[in-house]
Design a protein around this nucleic acid. Structure first.
Lengths: 201, 201, 201, 201
DNA sequence: CGGTAACCGAGACGGTACGTCCCGTCTTAGT
DNA sequence: ACTAAGACGGGACGTACCGTCTCGGTTACCG
């Protein structure tokens, strides 16, 4: 969401270059505020003050607090890939989903949920969220599903996005929409159901 | 969410009774604002002005704007039960989900999504949402699933909530979390998958 | 400049009445700031902070800092009437003008000059200045001139405003426009000239 | 007010010389802004943008916006000498003052009044105004008064500055301080009064 | 003829104050 | 007791300019 840092810049850029120091201080301050008071503590005002930065600088690069938080989360978020080995892909998915729910229950997860909340009424944020959070994660998990197909655990020809929605959907649904708790048992059974529906030989 | 109008009231209440007129004007104003500018147009200030009501009155009965919007939605929302007959329960569920996604794409749906968004950072609202929106709907759809079991389309002993999460989850996940469009084909396949996994016989 | 406190109010006024306490604290704070840092220290922000008052309250009753300062000056300014007895009206005018220049050289005078400066580009302030400062003072000095006519020191039929402009004009001109110092001798001679031109007998 | 272009320069100056093009563009832009939005439209930011010039360049040569405006006015202002012949010096002064009030009522005059306003709280500007505007004009009008003495219309030995303050003072006083309109009749009578008081023969 | 000093444009930076919106609380008078 | 009206202290918003500071690039003079 910060301005495109693309290639064409170097050639025709003039004027003082963007201060990476400021950017770093801003994201650090945001991270602190997020963990201290959640997303609603992330005020442009507070971020600027905490970072020792002018509000103008903030607004120069981010349109609103949600964009800042998103940048913070996407830049500093520990990617939740469960790298542990497991007997089967079914089990690997179960572990992966359990790691996901643990993340969502953490302070960082609170920020992510707040962003998901905020993007319901902010199309620009929604787009940014897709690009910086949703799609990269989906790409990762799609690879895992791909491997599961090659291992024969998922039927060949399965629509991977459909499959992934079938397992991640119920998890997020409970967390975000219905507000019911998500237990490990729930995850196990959802993954089992998906493997039953889409399972290969 | 309006203050409990429970039993003890009638007996020992004194003074002027609550004005139903005010309540109606408030909800009407809220509905207008919702359809005009979405949830973020629903400020206490704006509702009061539009309704020709004092802010005091608003705050006496609702704690914040989300509560008002929620009340408005839950009081005036056309319940989306697809009453059409169909050959199978599988198909009835498909129709039901398609009706749901149509609702979510409507102006009213925008309000609902905004509420879902807002409740991510507002526990009281989350609780109210559960009580007034989520649980009643779940009760309705659970009944349908119950009938599907009795008709033999879903396996006996199936955890109904698990089943319902398996079909509603992916829908809401795409709509609320990943922001991908939800097509009829997607719904068909998700329902098919659930009936494969939990199917009877 | 504060809202008309006229008669019709009492009858149909509703809602919380204006807080005189807030008004007092604001004017006191303004006076402090004026004497500490001159007119340019009188920021809406600073006044609000110093007075322990919300900025909204400030803006509710005054359109800008100049209006506040003007209100402060006109409400708390010691009226500069030189009450000393003198042999002649000519001498009384000379004393009066010397008192005026002493005022303009004081801290309070600095505020007045700043207001005169500010009103050059602010028509609303200009109007307010006329009403609250210029016209009341003129009324006072015109009475003195009237008496001088009755005493025969100024010719009957003299346009009093013309006479007063002829003596106050040079004083303010040097102070405000040309920036030259105004000495007592200068005042004496200007008054002498006016009495020569407009003198009675 | 632009940096001293005095003697020592030529000798030991090195590097690129000051760009007259930039200076011209700046003053032109300032003139435009002055006539469009008055003095308060003349911000350093706006001048730089309008002139296509870097703010650095502006600040290199002028300390603030008032200095720029003053430079603009003093460099481009048509000097208001009324060159028309007249029967008497009394009448020439009357014409001269009427030309002055016409100037003060014009767009350019608005800028001058704004500068007079600004210099009330800016000593450096006040000094610059004296040097570049006030004193040159006074020199001109003093010459006229000198001639009037030699022609016998003003008494020999009259303090010229006192005389000039006596006629210009009331004009500026009404325009700048009391805000009353200045009519031709007013000017005639003020000049008459001065010639009565200071008149020769 | 190559340095170097001062200029120029662009524009990012920390900062102050602005004027507005909405919050949630309060005080008053009217019904 | 409840209502409409609306003033109050407060927090944050997003913007306008301020004056300073790098940048890269451009002349002129001077050795």
């Amino acid at each position: 969401m910060p301005v495109e840092d693309g290639a064409p810049a170097a050639a025709l850029r003039r004027g003082r270059p963007r201060s990476t120091e400021a950017r770093d201080k801003i994201l650090a301050a945001t991270e602190e505020l997020l963990s201290e008071g959640g997303f609603q503590a992330v005020t442009m005002e507070a971020v600027a003050a905490r970072a020792g930065v002018a509000k103008t600088t903030l607004y120069r690069w981010w349109p609103n607090r949600a964009a800042v938080a998103l940048d913070c989360v996407s830049a500093r978020m520990t990617p939740i890939v469960d790298t542990s080995k497991a007997a089967s892909y079914r089990e690997r998915f179960q572990r992966q989903l359990k790691a996901t729910i643990r993340l969502l229950n953490s302070a960082q997860g609170h920020a992510i949920l707040a962003l998901i909340g905020a993007k319901q009424t902010d199309p620009a944020l929604a787009e940014a969220y897709s690009e910086q959070i949703a799609r990269p994660r989906r790409a990762q998990t799609r690879m895992l599903a791909q491997q599961a197909i090659m291992a024969g655990e998922i039927a060949e020809g399965t629509d991977l996005d459909l499959f992934l929605d079938a397992i991640y959907g119920p998890l997020y649904y409970r967390k975000v929409v219905s507000g019911e708790p998500v237990t490990d048992a729930f995850i196990d059974r959802i993954v089992d159901a998906a493997f039953t529906a889409f399972g290969g030989r």
